[in-house]
Amino acid sequence: MTRKQRRLTLIAVAGLVIAAAGALVLYALTDKIVFFNSPSDIVAKHPKPGTRIRLGGLVREGSVERGGNAHVAFEVTDGVASVPVAYVGILPDLFREGQGVVTEGAFDASGKLQADTVLAKHDERYMPKEVAEALKKSGEWRGDTPPK
């Protein structure tokens, strides 16, 4: 093979691999992404049961109920709307009422979010950006003091 032919082979193979990667990426990016929602979004949009979503907001004061065997139920609120969430497992260390939280899971038929992931804010001074922005929009945000 001449230098040119070799180069062409190489480029063809590389092109093929990159095309395959591109196709797979495009497929996965339409099918495997998860949308972030605030409770108000949920109330407005009514996502279909079974769709995976991320829900962020504050844990509503007084809404945390601990059942037996690590079952937990609580509500996530942005001050305008609240969405019930069910979770089985150990909550993160920083999970507290009135604090920022991001949960991920799918809605069941009764409109409850069956979460498989619960992330709490990681630091006293740090609030997940998506939560902060969603709260700002809903008017619950008061300057730099974390809403209580």
Partner: peptide
């Protein structure tokens, strides 16, 4: 792509998304 896509998507549409393990594990 998986890491930056949420940023680009948010800039383009304003909606927030997460590209998580399902994408990375598959692709």
């Amino acid at each position: 792509v998986g890491t930056l896509y949420p940023l680009v998507y948010e800039m383009a549409t304003g909606a927030k998304i997460t590209v998580g393990p399902p994408y990375f594990n598959l692709v």
